[in-house]
Amino acid sequence: MKLLNNGLMIVSLALLSACSSTPPVEPVVKTVVQTKFEFVHIPDEYIQPCAVGLSEVGDNTSLAQYAGKLEATIDVCNEQLLKAREWNNANRSK
């Protein structure tokens, strides 16, 4: 019986010494990245409405002149849209 007690004591001491030699715990470092969004407006000069004046169309000559005026207005609007798209693409990557 004494041999069994001595054996159990040796085993328990061996187990206790194994528990006391655990490696120290290292702190966990976390990096937090926060994205900030900023809304940027397109300049007003690129988004102005294109005014189309109404005019009296009496004959084919005045109709052709009015059609030319409308085409010029559409060209101005398309140029504004192109500038707005270029500005948007240039500021998108920033």
Rank of each mutant, 00 (worst) to 15 (best):
W87A: 03
D44G: 06
E71I: 05
P43D: 00
L3M: 07
T31R: 14
T61W: 00
A72Q: 13
S20G: 06
A90R: 10
A84V: 02
N89W: 10
V11I: 10
I42A: 10
L82M: 08
P23S: 12
S62C: 02
T22G: 02
K94Q: 10
L13Y: 14
A84G: 00
P23G: 06
I10Y: 15
T73K: 08
G68K: 05
P43G: 03
E45N: 13
L4M: 14
V28T: 07
A18R: 06
K36H: 10
V25Y: 03
N5R: 15
S93W: 04
L4F: 12
P49D: 13
K69G: 03
L54F: 08
P24C: 00
S93R: 12
P27H: 09
S62K: 04
T22Y: 09
Y46I: 02
N6E: 13
K2W: 05
Q65C: 08
S12P: 04
H41I: 07
V40Q: 10
V32N: 01
V40Y: 03
E26F: 08
N89L: 09
L15E: 08
I47H: 08
R92H: 11
I10W: 04
Y46E: 00
Q48M: 06
D59F: 00
V57C: 01
N5W: 06
T61G: 04
V29N: 03
L63K: 12
Q80S: 05
V29K: 15
V52Y: 09
C19E: 15
G53I: 07
G68D: 04
L13R: 07
K2R: 13
G7F: 11
P23E: 07
Q48W: 07
K30V: 09
N6R: 14
P23H: 08
K69Q: 13
S17R: 02
K30E: 07
N88S: 15
C50S: 08
D59G: 00
G58L: 11
V57L: 02
F37L: 13
L81Q: 11
A72R: 04
K94M: 04
A84Q: 00
V76M: 12
D75G: 06
E26T: 02
Q48N: 12
S12T: 14
S17M: 14
A72Y: 05
S55N: 12
D75N: 14
L81E: 10
T61P: 01
T31Y: 02
N78I: 04
C50H: 04
N78W: 07
N60S: 14
Q34L: 11
